[in-house]
Amino acid sequence: MARNITYREAIHEALAQEMERDETVIVMGEDNAGGAGAPGDDDAWGGVLGVTKGLYHKFPGRVLDTPISESAFIGAAIGAATAGMRPVAELMFVDFMGVCFDQIYNQAAKFRYMFGGKAVTPVVIRTMYGAGLRAAAQHSQSLYPLFTHIPGLKVVTPATPYDAKGLLIAAIRDNDPVMFFEHKALYDISGPVPEESYALPFGEASVVREGSDVTIVTLGRMVHTSLEAAGQLAAAGVECEVVDLRTTSPLDEDTVLESVEGTGRLVVVDEAHPRCSIATDISALVARKAFGSLRAPIEMVNAPHTPVPFSSALEDMYIPDAQRIANAAKTVTGWSR
């Protein structure tokens, strides 16, 4: 039975239900309980944004606070995964990957191949990404393209509470390492989510709006911005089909290609920087495999090739908005040779 809960609550519920179902599921990260060793509450925070709050007392010994040592505890989560646990480690901000990336891309991602198929590493690394909270250059990046590039990793970018719960449950049950990207501006959005547990398959994009004129391929927070743009465009007589990739690795090529074959026009909307991004990846895919269907050059809407600025005046310009998306859609619909 579905009811409306927030993205944050959906993630918490997925963790709680999987911890209930499977005692090998453990949670670790900085302040995941909060207050370890301090004189006050021992479940003080539940992570910096409160996602894991309440799990500590419900699952004794299975919610671990860590020192600020990303290499050590992300590596420990990976090691524990090779030893029969299903750890969910929280890398507070994906920007912090710089201090633990080796454990993710050289260790977890490669064990199975490098060891001839003999390793199973069912680790999930939850991480917060994205601009919009005035958190500046080292706490706001959208770095999923870097992980998407790495064979052996799966990369998940839920846009809605429903997807967040189902994809996180799937990630925990998955036997490969999964990077789970949570956009920090989405935690408070609400949507219908079943009370029951459910797993959504990876590599299945979601067509969140049907339309015949332009395909907008997007992901994460930009799904909502794209839908806003699609609403504006519909009023102007342009019907957009909005495709939410949901996972960038594996990638649902078929849904993207089928949509472009139907519309003949593509706008890719991606909060990452434009070079070597999901936008370039999707553009290349469509140019290679649906060239014959294209009736206009592909448009990309990305953040600029700059660090994320702090000042609200600048950050608001940095983040792709509905107007830029609508302009791109008008460019492709208005294009003629």
């Binding site: 050590a72 590596g75 420990a76 750890p87 080796d102």
Partner: peptide, 13 residues
């Protein structure tokens, strides 16, 4: 590369 990993296997044990 190894020390973080064995923290995990030790934790599992």
């Amino acid at each position: 590369g190894g020390p973080p990993l064995i923290c995990g296997t030790a934790l599992a044990a």
